[in-house]
Design a protein around this nucleic acid. Structure first.
Lengths: 188, 188
DNA sequence: GTCTATACAACGATAGAC
DNA sequence: GTCTATCGTTGTATAGAC
């Protein structure tokens, strides 16, 4: 049975890792630094996670699982328009609630590879979102617009330049911009 | 005086580095791999570049210098509209002519940090482009739209999913999308 | 089950010989 | 301009204490 201490150490480890990642980047954060910040040995870190990649994946995992659930929920909506609205609002919301993580995820190197495995790999989130937003047989214009909207929302949400904007302001403008890119009318 | 052999070795080194970066990522490419591919020693590589970061910067430098010149040229145009058009078309063109590099630059870790130094650092390209596109005292809506447009164009241009689209098709749709994001009419 | 101690090959980087 | 030799540190790995 997993003890409370173990759970706590694992949780603290992930929180510490995220903090160090935002400060020094994934490449710039060594297992030694994480271990020192926790007051344990490098090998103790290695006990909880077999590789450094496992740590970066675990840091990003909660947000990715949420995104996966969002896509599932959107898939079950009947009207294509409702699907697009649901996924667009969900992604903007997800980005806003993870601004720090998203910032690391897209500006900083390192975590990108680990995330890409989830995005293009087993979950194939990118593919599923793409299909949901522009259908299976979309023309080039729609595909490009979808890419610009998704990448733009994600990177703008994590941008240091826009960090000064409060959540509600950023949400409003991200949604409006994304809807304009995808050619959807402004919502009532 | 720099001999022809030295210039050639340096040039071959950068070409080899870019190729290995696209294949294995920046993190996944060691100086040993670059040296082996060139048929020299790791220390020989160090003669041409003092650090690994210097190599990644040198790989990205031509594109960044081009971007800098583009911003300079746009700055000297009188009409704000003409400035925006010039910089938008220039960026799309630049992204298209460097699809491979841009792909590495934004999906792969490692090179990002080196590039960010140029983008936010001495040249402050991001800041200058931002000012050119939305002026010094822009509202939140314009700032968000500008961010989405820039990030979206850059990432969509390097996206593996859109790699199948030919240059002309991608150029047309990237430009149209970016203009729509920024609220500019489609050009005649 | 949780951690420390220890070791190892590979890495980026440096010094000095040719 | 390129080499050999070497450094400190990294990620990874195992053995064994509690």
């Amino acid at each position: 049975m997993t003890t409370d201490v173990a759970v706590d150490t694992r949780t603290r480890l992930l929180a510490t890792a995220l903090r160090l990642f935002t400060e020094h980047g994934v490449e710039g954060t060594s297992l030694q630094m994480i271990a020192d910040a926790l007051g344990v040995t490098k090998a103790a870190v290695y006990y909880h996670f077999k590789t450094k990649d496992e740590i970066t994946e675990a840091v990003a995992e909660p947000a990715l699982r949420e995104l996966s659930r969002l896509v599932d929920a959107a898939s079950q909506l009947r009207r294509p328009g409702a699907r697009i609205d649901h996924i667009l609002e969900g992604i903007v919301d997800l980005v806003l609630r993870n601004r720090v993580l998203v910032g690391v995820l897209f500006t900083d190197p390192g975590i990108g590879r680990a995330v890409e495995r989830s995005l293009h790999g087993e979950m194939n989130l990118i593919g599923r979102i793409h299909d949901l937003l522009c259908g299976p047989d979309a023309d080039a214009a729609t595909m490009v617009a979808t890419h610009v909207a998704l990448a733009g929302v994600a990177m703008a949400g994590g941008s240091p330049t826009l960090a000064e904007l409060d959540d509600e302001t950023l949400r409003t403008h991200l949604l409006a911009t994304a809807r304009r890119v995808l050619g959807r009318r402004h919502r009532p």
